[in-house]
């Protein structure tokens, strides 16, 4: 009579040596420092903007007035400023909308250019200049945005204004292309074009990278089935790279939303809701922060930090949408 007893499973455990434990502790310490540092920034932004949000509530996001009763930026009250009634009002509705509008214009222009550029480099460019083009693209993505801003003002504005005039001439029956005064410089449209130029290298670079990872045998199969180059691109390359390209576009959108100096130089900020993209008046949270910062009072700084937080949250949402799209549409197989 044999009874086979099921043996108790033994726990298996990785046992680290002393040296290993020290190593792990040091590394964990480093990672924790990064975590705390970055976490602290968020906590700080939230804490410092609490005052503003408590005072203005949702009005801060929807209102369109920014008025500061004076005070010295580095603390220390201005002489004679006793506890007066504080008439300051802070709200950034038009800036948020403006940021979205300019970024949207930029993406609408940049996306086709990026996809075209990426496809050209990967599939149409002569092989002899392929490496040169890839390097040029990487370099373009590294140009500081300040230089884009200078170029935008001194070189592109002339062209952009001409395009704006043309659009206004032919299409002013569409509300977004109509303007009250025909002054097209420093308008969301022209700023959006420059922003597009700034975003294109980034999104093109990502798309190209994604397209280049299309398995070669899938492309070969298309050709082996008698397909043309465009056929292979349509049925294999584009579907395969879709999620990557979307992620790249979102990266570009994040960049466009957070861009400061280029917009600072290219756009007139006006605290008024406006959807006339050719009008020389727009809004932008990031460059508003840079603009108002110079002579900001303590309370105003808190409002600027609140604006920064709003901007940060918008970028965060964009990034999360991007990752969820990527997670959902990555092809199996």
């Amino acid at each position: 009579m044999t009874i086979v007893e099921t043996p108790e499973p033994r726990q298996m455990m990785v046992v680290y040596s002393r040296a290993d434990r020290i190593f792990r502790r040091i590394v964990t310490g480093g990672a924790l420092t990064s975590l705390l540092l970055l976490g602290f920034i968020t906590a700080f932004l939230v804490m410092r903007s609490a005052e503003t949000f408590r005072q203005f509530g949702l009005d801060f996001i929807t209102g369109s007035e920014w008025f500061s009763a004076g005070e010295d930026p580095l603390g220390g009250a201005v002489e004679g400023a006793v506890e007066e009634v504080d008439e300051s009002v802070f709200s950034i509705g038009p800036m948020i909308v403006g940021s979205l509008v300019v970024a949207l214009i930029a993406m609408l222009i940049a996306l086709p250019l990026s996809i075209g550029g990426a496809l050209y480099i990967e599939f149409y460019a002569p092989r002899s200049i392929y490496r040169v083009l890839v390097s040029l693209l990487d370099l373009a993505a590294a140009i500081p945005s300040l230089i884009f801003g200078l170029w935008g003002i001194q070189v592109f504005t002339a062209i952009g204004v001409r395009w704006a005039t043309l659009l206004n001439d032919r299409l002013s029956f569409i509300p977004i292309f109509s303007v009250e005064f025909e002054n097209f410089g420093r308008s969301p449209f022209v700023a959006g074009c420059v922003l597009a130029a700034l975003v294109v290298p980034i999104t093109t670079s990502v798309s190209r990278e994604v397209y280049s990872r299309t398995p070669r045998d899938l492309i070969d199969t298309c050709f082996a089935l008698g397909g043309s180059k465009w056929g292979a691109i349509r049925s294999v390359v584009m579907p395969y790279g879709k999620s990557g390209v979307i992620a790249g576009a979102m990266l570009g959108l994040g960049r466009a939303l957070g861009e400061t100096v280029a917009i600072y130089l290219m756009l007139n900020l006006v605290f008024r809701y406006s959807f006339e993209i050719l009008d020389s008046a727009g809004g932008n949270v990031a460059s508003m922060i840079a603009l108002k910062f110079g002579e900001a009072t303590d309370k105003e700084i808190s409002a600027l930090i609140a604006s920064g937080l709003v901007l940060f949250i918008i970028t965060l949402i964009v990034n999360m949408i991007a990752s969820s799209i990527v997670a959902r549409t990555t092809p199996r197989a």
Binding site: T221, A224, L225, G227, P239
Partner: peptide
């Protein structure tokens, strides 16, 4: 002159039916 490759490589974004018909569409 058609070709079958070493590694099976159905088009990932297509259904079985679409895969069979892919060549007809491509050409």
């Amino acid at each position: 002159v058609g070709m079958v490759f070493q590694k099976p490589n159905p088009f990932p974004a297509m259904t079985i039916r679409e895969n069979v018909l892919a060549g007809i569409k491509l050409a």
